[in-house]
């Protein structure tokens, strides 16, 4: 029974971080979005990346696909953006995983690269369909830079709790 319950940690955490992203954005709007800086929380991506290294979940691309589809449908209404970006990032990170031993600094760098891929391609898609209306330079200075900084701080704070939590679940399986 105990083992069975522990299998649900990964999906449960994923769903909670999915909702927390929106709730953080909503509650802290005055702090996160000012005239010169826009910070966006990416806890969902953080949970997925930690899942690759510390959980023994085998079907991460499928989970990423499902939660990405839900994200598109519930938050933006434009299907097909996170639906493809999240599984692709998970797939590429899994390849990188083969060459590294998981440690704090390795994950920090990999998370940095993943955030860059996600933010830049999300911006490119939105620019393509006419939803984002800013130049590349304003994107980098107002949105991209602050978002990276904010999420790396979140990573530093959350790395140990999440990795310990995921490892404690794996040991008994």
């Amino acid at each position: 029974m105990k083992n069975k319950n522990k299998r649900y940690l990964f999906p449960a955490g994923m769903i909670i971080s999915f909702f927390l992203d929106g709730t953080i954005q909503f509650i802290f709007t005055p702090q996160l979005q000012s005239q010169t800086t826009i910070m966006v929380s990416h806890l969902l991506l953080l949970w997925l990346i930690m899942g690759i290294f510390y959980s023994d979940n085998k079907h991460l691309e499928l989970w990423a696909f499902g939660i990405g589809l839900a994200f598109d449908s519930y938050y933006t209404g434009i299907l097909g953006v996170y639906m493809i970006l999240l599984p692709l990032i998970v797939y590429l990170t899994k390849i990188a995983y083969q060459y590294f031993e998981p440690s704090f600094f390795v994950l920090l760098l990999i998370y940095f690269i993943d955030l860059t891929v996600l933010e830049v391609s999300y911006y490119a898609i939105n620019e393509m369909i006419g939803f984002a209306n800013e130049s590349v330079t304003t994107f980098i200075s107002t949105s991209f830079g602050p978002t990276l900084a904010f999420n790396l701080v979140l990573f530093v704070i959350l790395y140990y709790p999440i990795s310990k939590l995921m490892e404690s679940v794996n040991r008994y399986n």
Partner: peptide, 15 residues
């Protein structure tokens, strides 16, 4: 009441 806000820089949307 507002449930959530889209976590994105430029699409200003609420649910």
């Amino acid at each position: 009441s507002v449930l959530t806000r889209l976590p994105s820089g430029w699409l200003n949307q609420l649910v």
